[in-house]
Write a protein that binds this DNA or RNA. Structure first.
Length: 819
RNA sequence: GGGCGCGUAGCUCAGUUGGUUAGAGCAUCUGUCUUACAAACAGAGGGUCAGAGGUUCGAGUCCUCUCGCGCCCACCA
């Protein structure tokens, strides 16, 4: 071995080298016809959003551990890659990068700008995924806005239409006034806010039944600006205070219109005054009442969140300003008789944190509410890792209140392949062979199927990005398979993802797979947790605790980051800790040094030539011990990986390497390696053979976690004797039951115990570990004595002991006395 | 209010189907230049396993309740 091999492993120098090598050699290319059972992964296409963040590192490395393991275990791994780059997130990014506002630009100019911007930034964005060592096949990637995805997305939309699983309806929908589009239930977030509960006086008609004391009705509301939308007042049926008012009318203050007082059990008698104004629309209950009692529609807010003509003198004001003015006016008229400060939770749009409204508008919906039972059942058919994550999907489905709204009044997305007949309004779908199509620039073929009309207007809306990414199994498979073969590959083997998008991406994919293929999209899912800051708080720009993985990569390299990411079990959140990443780097140095030391004392070619002669049978008992331990390790690591439990695998490997191999075994046998005399040949060769095979096995066990360092070590020290061109093609170690010798494991425990006793003896006396020990007395039973005698020479060497005395007695526990 | 997860050494976490004296890393202290590694190595101290009941010969592990933390959902008049 050449002397210039450095003492310290330098990841930042090494990693780019192997990245290039893997790409050049096509190590991770997928070949559908290659041998081995296919293992297909529905990789999450990251949203192109500037830069990869630390949360990406965490969950993507998890799936990479599994992909690499599966590949080494002989499966033909399909590990595709794509990017999700349309819809609101992309629009927002482009607006920010290019300092433009989509709403102030010509539609087509903005779309062109989005496409250009994506072209500029995507390569750098994807490069980060390569840098962390993802073993995806990057030679073909999809983007959810590319031609093929647009075609696929539109094709499957038409499929939904034909199957009547998608419908268009003019109805109340959750609306973001900032983004000016409808959004889906899954895109809502909670936000705590302070507001006032206002007690407002509604005048009652004068012709009240005899005995009525009051001539007005007080209603508490947080949203006085919606007074002009008030279409009814609700009270509880058993509320004695208002019983005689049911069926009567009350006058809306300021606006003067009269609304009916209705009784309904949804009213909470204890809240406010017990009487509620129903506005179209203030909240979900209003929608329910609107539908149930067929109330009139009175929308006071427009799509931009400004007051409409309905609000008369307040028209044109923002909701916030209108609230202020109305309160002032009510005060003047002495119709506001109380204000109470409260904190309540309201729904905001997750993308822009704007308070959402409910507006009536025409949207496309995918049916999900009538499928709840079936969808829950499909969720149960999938095997979940960890299991408890399945409950989250079940709970989400149970709690759904709206069908899945997929239309967005936006610009950069996949258009609906739809026109509407001017005469009868019937939707007309595009011809499949014309896809992808933009209805704004193309015309439909043929006449209206319903009325025979020949004039059409195009659909302006685009689809929500989830409506395309929910087809990711198809998008990914289509990179490598012909369209007609795609369905045969479903269900895929694995969907990996983080827990935050169970109610969106995971759920929607199940919905689509059910409608299009009538089966689950994958047989197993693995769900990763999140990365929190070192104090366990969410990372956010406002807290200033965001960690950029790019800096960590530069400082410690990808392997150290990956090693850190493997440290917590699947599904658990992890706190970011630079110390733990440092520990990973230390592990790499230690591994490098241990290998370097071993290989300085071994000539792999000689070893190979003498392999048969040395064999495993004639090995020293100490050597059989470490091989037995290694067998246990391989079995554990394999079992854990098969169960997606990479963290147990990593922990076991780490402990074996550091505690058993480096701290003990190598220390014990190094004396045999140094002995170059003819007499020491047998012992030397036995240790060499053992060390070489242990390290090569260990290296393969570690390869999924630290692909760069394991490759560097393989290429530097092992490749001449082994044939594969990369460690990642060397295969997963096989277990060899012959070596799993339980007796030798017991012997090993005894060795470690005796060595520890000698070390303690020397440490307590401040002696060098090399210091000679005159005599060591061992109290034990006859069986143990026999076992120790087999390894006596190794023990004497490592402890520099002159003499070992045995005091063997029946049932005597092992005890060591040192002089 | 409902669901899920978590609570083990100063910190971050392991702890298989219940079974010897509850483990590791980091941190702390002490020692050692030892022909892989001083950014190393060896050793030490440090735990009522959140709390209370229960099942059991035996509970960190199983059951019930309580408390604390986190996430998701609901409530938003």
């Amino acid at each position: 071995m050449s002397k210039e091999i450095s003492k310290r492993y330098n990841p930042t120098e090494t990693e780019p080298k192997w990245l290039k090598f893997w790409e050049k050699e096509g190590i991770y290319k997928y070949n559908p016809r290659a041998k081995g059972e296919v293992f297909s992964i529905d990789t999450p296409p990251p949203t192109v959003s500037g830069k990869m963040h630390i949360g990406h590192v965490y969950s993507y490395t998890h799936e990479d551990f599994i992909a690499r393991y599966q590949k080494m275990a002989g499966r033909n791994v399909l590990f595709p890659f794509g990017t999700d780059d349309n819809g609101l997130p992309t629009e927002r990014l482009v607006e920010k990068l290019k300092k433009v506002r989509a709403s102030k630009m010509k539609r087509q100019d903005f779309i062109d700008l989005c496409n250009e911007t994506l072209k500029e930034i995507t390569p750098d964005f994807v490069a980060d995924w390569k840098k962390i060592g993802m073993s995806c096949d990057f030679s073909r990637v999809y983007s959810t806005i590319d031609d093929d995805c647009r075609r696929t997305s539109q094709k499957f939309f038409i499929d939904l239409y034909k199957k009547q699983k998608v419908y268009r309806q003019d109805a109340p929908v959750v609306w973001c006034p900032h983004c000016q589009t409808a959004i889906a239930q899954a895109e809502l977030e909670d936000k705590e806010a302070e507001t006032y509960f206002n007690d407002i006086v509604f005048e009652l008609p004068t012709n009240l039944p005899a005995g009525s004391k009051k001539n007005n009705l007080v209603i508490a509301t947080t949203r006085p600006e919606l007074l002009s939308s008030c279409v009814a007042i609700f009270v509880h049926p058993s509320d004695k205070r208002y019983r005689n008012l049911v069926g009567k009318k009350a006058q809306v203050p300021i606006f003067g219109n009269r609304v009916e007082i209705i009784s309904d059990k949804k009213v909470d008698m204890k809240k406010g005054s017990g009487a509620v104004m129903c506005c179209t629309f203030g909240d979900k209950t209003d929608v329910e009442w609107f539908k149930e009692y067929k109330l009139t529609l009175a929308m006071s807010l427009d799509k931009a969140g400004r007051m409409t003509e309905k609000a008369k003198k307040y028209a044109g004001l923002s909701a916030k300003d209108a609230r202020h003015e109305i309160i002032e006016d009510l005060k003047k008229k002495k119709l506001l008789i109380g204000q109470k400060k409260i904190t309540h939770t309201l729904n905001v749009h997750e993308r822009c944190k704007t308070e959402v409204e409910i507006l009536n508008s025409e949207q496309w919906y995918v049916r999900v509410l009538d499928q709840k039972k079936k969808l829950i059942q499909l969720g149960e058919e999938i095997k979940w890792h960890p299991e408890f994550m399945q409950t989250r999907l079940g709970n989400w489905i149970k709690g759904l209140n709206w069908d899945w709204c997929i239309s967005r009044q936006r610009f950069f997305g996949i258009p609906f392949p739809v026109w509407y007949c001017v005469k009868c309004g019937e939707a007309k779908m595009a011809d499949e062979k014309d896809l992808p199509v933009d209805p704004l620039s193309a015309n439909p073929k043929g006449k209206c199927e319903k009325c025979g009309g020949s004039k059409f207007i195009p659909e302006h809306d685009v689809m929500d990005t989830w409506a395309t990414s929910s087809l990711s199994p198809v998008l990914a498979l289509h990179l490598f398979y012909k369209e007609k073969d795609v369905e045969k590959m479903i269900p895929m083997n694995l969907r990996p993802q983080a827990h935050d998008i169970i109610s969106t991406w995971l759920f929607y994919t199940v919905v689509r797979s059910n409608y299009h293929f009538e089966k689950i999209p994958w047989t197993e899912v693995m769900i990763s947790g999140h990365v929190l800051d070192s104090a366990g708080r969410k990372m956010s720009k406002s807290l200033g605790n965001v960690v950029a993985p790019q800096e960590i990569l530069e400082k410690y390299g990808a392997d150290a980051l990956r090693f850190w990411a493997a440290g917590r079990s699947l599904g658990q959140n992890i706190n970011f800790s630079e110390e733990e990443i440092q520990a990973g780097k230390k592990f790499l140095t230690k591994l490098w040094n241990a290998t370097r030391f071993v290989m300085m004392n071994i000539n792999p070619r000689d070893l190979r030539a003498n392999e048969k002669r040395i064999g495993t049978n004639s090995l020293y008992p100490t050597d059989k011990w470490i091989l037995a331990e290694l067998e246990v390790l391989v079995a554990t690591a394999t079992k854990s990986f098969e169960n997606y439990d990479y963290s147990s695998s990593k922990l076991a490997i780490e402990k074996f390497f550091w505690l058993k191999l480096a701290d003990n075994y190598i220390e014990i046998v190094k004396n045999r390696l140094y002995d170059e005399s003819p007499k020491g040949k047998k012992g030397r060769e036995s240790a060499q053979f053992t060390l070489y095979s242990v390290l090569f096995t260990l290296l393969r066990l570690l390869a999924p976690f630290i692909p760069f360092a394991s490759e560097e070590i393989y290429q530097t020290f092992f490749k001449s004797a082994k044939c594969a061109k990369s460690i990642h093609l060397c295969g997963w170690p096989e277990t060899d039951k012959k070596l799993a010798d339980k007796e030798k494991i017991k012997t090993g425990k005894i060795i470690v115990e005796i060595v520890a006793a000698m070390r303690k003896h020397k440490a307590e006396r401040g002696l060098s570990m090399k210091a000679e020990l005159e005599k060591v007395e061992i109290f034990c039973d006859a069986m143990t004595k026999k076992a120790i005698q087999e390894i006596e020479s190794d023990l004497k060497a490592v402890g520099n002991i002159r003499k070992i005395n045995f005091i063997a007695k029946k049932n005597s526990k092992l005890r060591i006395a040192i002089q």
